[in-house]
Write a protein that binds this DNA or RNA. Structure first.
Length: 976
RNA sequence: GCCGUCUUAGCUCAGUGGUAGAGCACUCGCUUCACACGCGAUAGGUCAGAAGUUCAAAUCUUCUAGACGGCACCA
């Protein structure tokens, strides 16, 4: 068979996915075993606006590895794909498009038309990421693809909202919320990030005090003469001399909000201000008079100890205002400009313009005490980085108490979800839950799930599942629906069960049936179990740290609340793939690496297995060079297969050579040398299979990759192939070749045919082990092997057409682990290595053959004798002399291995000086180890307290080291 | 301020009580008939620092230093 000399990823990537998908291999229905256990994963839905980034690639790789692995094991496997509607992002895209194409605003075209265009946008651009997932090789069941605004998922949202409202867990109220003036919507606490700015300022503003003794000072606010000493200076004056100061100085970072001040507060125990409490100040730039109040909230140590109170624009001030019954004066519009309440001079000014102007006016009036530099942390909108404005607003909230307690109980009693890695995520998760605050769920957008609440002319609210139901509740009054939509995370929070068809009806019936607690859904007789019955709870959720609160925790709570079930058993939290600079990848830093470029450059499979190799849970800096390792690995696999195929004439994996023949000791019997090598590789293969399965069970993807890499490259390629090469390749003479006319490929004997089957079998199993990580390459090669067929499938997929992705994942058989074979192979390998080392150190030309002399006990001599041909070939020797003792000329290079001494006669070639230093170096190295071990063994505490087998092992090692050192020392002396 | 993570070879990282590992880079030698995306052979680390527990510490405890993350506060 002709096969290219190097692996071309593109060719394999283009030819398999379409067949896998169209043949239904990804759907759980491909599994025909009625008793098959299920395995399910739902994808964390990427934004419908999104395109694939490295975080996705990492998480998708892990999900696909798990899915393909379990599918090959015969599970009824479902990985469910989909996207979320990304309220703010889509809204912004459509607004931008509208502006650019038609220079219109959403208000110009109206809500209905806007929503229509948003859908159109979604249809046109929303499948970018799903197409990219096909490129990744993601084995998701596209027939079950979901979108958070699908009819059924929307119904679920509406029912959840209504149920929570009816039960008192959702309320509407006036609170200080995070407002993004750019997006013109409220944000939840989790969508706001703190950003530290060193260039902040703290402004000290003077508020004239209305002194009872001097009367109303309001007319004197412009007075810059006299009596304006600051309170700080006043504080130095003894209390007896204290007079009501002319000004009360407040410090603020947001001067523009003073226009909304409705009080100034001081600490009740602050002696400096005792006499001022109960008096008023004339609020500059306004005609308002506001009270000086005392409140414990004020820290007398900070600033001037006097705080301006703006209840409508600050969360703490809001609480102070509540306590003191202060008016809440809103001075800003929803776009961050000042409104009429701020006064005619400021009406319509942007908040930062207004800040400048307020400060200027204070300065003009002589009311600006000073401006200090101040490091400040500002809340910014996570998406657009706009500075978020805390503002008083009427919004919908979810009280999380009950659901929070459910989630905590689940963790406390069952340890669910089990986080991997457990530290630190479990603690962070529970701590967050314990401090959970109410969740703002309304958003001032048009794209999303419109809140199912209606208002009558008097402002009474009616929450209902439909407009008709609301109208009925309102006694037939004319109603208008709430204009807001729900937070996208609200619908994402239902994802674990809404994607399986839950709409709320079943949930309600279930609640009425009172069987919420046991997590089992009754299935009516004769009905097919629904996806919800079968696949929830899902087995594992793969996600990033950043959405544990935003999504994972909410999904756990909502799933438990509405289905009585766990959302998932395990949560695997992936690390963050950082840019080359060690910082998170971002557009602004321009340190991003595009996974699609990596696919082009190194191949999808190489990128995937590289990502799996770094999936330890820790963050990792990106490094192109490391993918190259796995591109090389892919090429290695390709070429090893190429070699096997070039020598596979007369060999076939197909029936009647069954798996039983290949997977067990029933392999075609072979005597002598071949036996050891085969027993050894089978031992290595089965150990690897067992350990890989174990690693995947524990979500230790990097361990699995490392095991596979070293098995394939070191054991299979470097040793097995080299050791059996002579046997499986034909060395026919030119005459014979002419006779057979088939380029010498036909097996020259039954033994050779068997050897060819064996190597193909090892390779085939290795490809299966690798398949979840490298789906394209392994499918491409598996299809090329002679005799691969559905016979190699897991029993659950007997009828499906042949594909490696439905083949049986090797479990590994402990009966095939052969420690004797591994020990014997170590002897052979060590011997070869010692001789190679001597060759290199002594500058023996590769073409020169040497003779190998070994002194050892009979048992060892037997093993070496049985593998003579292999040793001679790989050590480039032409003679192996075995004996009880060495009988070699003085001009020989010597070495020791465990229980054997090796000599390579080098008459005329040996450099005595070099040999002396070589031996000296080895003696020194071994001597250090001996010294340490002797120290340990002479320590009575160690001998008495350490486990006996540890002590025994060290004693053996000591004896061996002594022997080796003695031998080497004798050799060294013999040279002089 | 509170909670947490990390610090191991030149680089990127594995390694949870018993002889320090990998890939890449480096050095030397190879057109050995699968593969130069390769083969062979070397070299390279008192595991951030200090103290403690232990027969035994990269690994457990405490402290210190540095890097980072989350949460809270911030007039």
């Amino acid at each position: 068979m002709e096969i290219a000399k190097a692996y071309e990823p593109k060719l394999a990537e283009e030819s398999h996915y379409q067949r896998w998908e169209s043949s239904g291999f990804f759907a759980p229905e491909i599994n025909k075993d009625p008793d098959a256990p299920k395995y399910s994963i739902v994808i964390p839905p990427p934004n419908v606006t999104g395109s694939l980034h490295m975080g996705h690639a990492l998480q998708h790789t892990i999900m696909d590895v798990l899915t393909r692995w379990k599918r090959m094991q015969g599970y009824r496997t479902l990985w469910l794909p989909g996207t979320d509607h990304a309220g703010i992002s889509v809204q912004r895209k459509v607004v931008e498009q509208l502006k650019k194409d038609e220079n219109k605003t959403p208000l110009d075209i109206g809500r209905e038309e806007f929503v229509r265009r948003a859908w159109a946008w979604k249809e046109q651009y929303g499948n970018t990421i799903t197409e990219q997932m096909r490129r990744e090789g993601a084995s998701v069941d596209w027939s079950r693809q979901r979108f958070t605004m699908d009819a059924s998922l929307s119904l679920a949202v509406r029912n959840v909202f209504c149920t929570l409202y009816d039960e008192g867990w959702i309320y509407r109220g006036l609170r200080i919320v995070n407002w993004c003036p750019k997006d013109k919507t409220v944000l939840s606490d989790l969508e706001v990030k703190e950003e530290t700015r060193k260039d902040g300022k703290l402004y000290y503003l003077r508020y004239p005090v209305n002194d009872a003794e001097t009367g109303d000072r309001r007319q004197e606010t412009g007075d810059t003469e006299g009596g304006n000493a600051s309170v700080n200076e006043r504080a130095e004056i003894p209390h007896s001399a204290f007079r009501i100061p002319q000004f009360l100085v407040v410090a603020t970072t947001r001067p523009e909000t003073m226009l909304g001040d409705t009080a100034v507060a001081v600490n009740p125990s602050d002696e400096r201000y005792k006499d001022l409490v109960g008096k008023t100040v004339a609020l500059p730039l306004t005609d308002r008079e506001i009270p000086i109040i005392a409140d414990e909230y004020v820290d007398a140590e900070f600033g001037t100890g006097a705080v301006k109170i703006t209840p409508a624009h600050d969360p703490n001030d809001y609480l102070v205002g509540e306590r003191h019954g202060l008016p809440q004066l809103l001075v800003m519009n929803d776009d961050g400009t000042m409104n009429a309440a701020a006064g005619a001079a400021f009406d319509g000014l942007d908040r930062f313009e207004a800040r400048k102007k307020v400060v200027e006016r204070f300065e003009e009036l002589g009311l600006l005490e000073k401006i200090e530099d101040y490091e400040i942390s500002l809340p910014v909108c996570e998406r657009c980085k706009t500075i978020v404005e805390p503002i008083l607003s009427d919004q919908w909230f979810v009280k999380m108490d009950e659901m929070r307690d459910m989630a905590l109980e689940l963790m406390r009693s069952e340890g669910v979800p089990h986080f991997s890695p457990q530290v630190p995520h479990e603690k962070v998760y529970t701590t967050w839950l314990e401090n959970l605050k109410d969740w703002t769920i309304s958003r001032q957008l048009w794209w999303g799930h419109q809140i199912p609440a209606w208002y009558d002319a008097d402002g009474n609210v009616y929450v209902a599942r439909t407009a008709e139901e609301a109208k009925e509740k309102a006694g037939g009054k004319e109603l208008t629906q709430d204009q807001d939509v729900l937070d996208t995370w609200f619908s994402s929070g239902l994802w674990a069960f809404s994607t399986f068809g839950w709409t709320g009806e079943a949930g309600r019936q279930l609640a009425e049936g009172g069987s919420l607690s046991d997590g089992q859904q009754p299935t009516a007789d004769g009905q097919q179990p629904s996806d919800l019955d079968v696949f929830l709870p899902t087995d594992v959720l793969i996600t990033g740290r950043d959405i544990i609160f935003l999504w994972v925790s909410r999904m756990i709570m909502l799933t438990k609340k509405f289905t009585g079930k766990k959302a998932f058993e395990d949560v695997v939290v992936t690390g963050t793939v950082l840019g080359k600079d060690g910082k998170p990848m971002s557009k602004s830093r321009n340190n991003g690496v595009d996974p699609l470029e990596m696919f082009d450059k190194f191949g999808v499979d190489a990128t995937r297995i590289y990502l799996a190799s770094i999936a330890t849970g820790a963050d990792i800096k990106w490094n192109d060079l490391l993918i190259e390792t796995y591109r090389n690995f892919a090429n290695k696999i390709w070429n090893a297969t190429r070699f096997c195929l070039m020598n596979s004439e007369g060999a076939s994996l197909g029936y009647p050579l069954q798996r039983a023949d290949l997977d067990s000791r029933e392999m075609p019997p072979k005597g002598g040398t071949q036996n050891l090598v085969d027993r050894w590789i089978m031992s290595r293969l089965n150990k690897t299979a067992i350990d890989v399965n174990k690693a995947l069970d524990r979500y230790e993807f990097h361990t699995a990759v490392s095991l596979l890499y070293h098995f394939f490259w070191d054991d299979f390629c470097d040793w097995y192939i080299e050791l059996v090469k002579d046997e499986i390749t034909t060395r026919e003479t030119g005459d014979e070749r002419q006779e057979t006319g088939d380029k010498g490929q036909r097996p020259r004997s039954e033994d050779q045919r068997s050897a060819r089957i064996r190597i193909l079998s090892i390779l085939e199993q290795a490809l299966r082990l690798l398949h979840p990580f490298m789906p394209y390459l392994t499918e491409e090669l598996w299809q090329k092997l002679p005799g691969t067929s559905a016979n190699l499938h897991n029993a659950a997929y007997r009828d499906a057409e042949a594909t490696i992705m439905l083949s049986d994942y090797p479990k590994g058989d402990t009966a095939l682990i052969d420690e004797n074979a591994e020990a014997e192979m170590s002897l052979v390998i060590d011997t070869i290595r010692r001789v190679r080392n001597i060759r290199t150190e002594m500058n023996i030309k590769p073409s020169d053959r040497v003779s190998i002399n070994v002194a050892a006990a009979a048992e060892i001599r037997d093993t070496l004798a049985a593998n003579e041909a292999q040793i001679l070939k790989l050590a480039r020797a032409d003679k192996l002399v075995l004996g009880e003792t060495l009988d070699v000329p003085k001009a020989s290079a010597k070495a020791v291995i465990t229980n054997a001494e090796i000599a390579v006669p080098l008459e005329g070639l040996i450099d005595f000086e070099k040999e002396r230093s070589r031996l000296g170096g080895q003696i020194e190295k071994l001597g250090k180890e001996l010294e340490r071990i002797s120290g340990q063994l002479s320590n009575a505490d160690f001998v008495n307290k350490a486990p006996a087998e540890k002590v025994e092992a060290l004693r053996e090692r000591k004896t061996e080291l002594e022997t080796q050192i003695r031998t080497l020392t004798q050799n060294l002396h013999a040279l002089t």
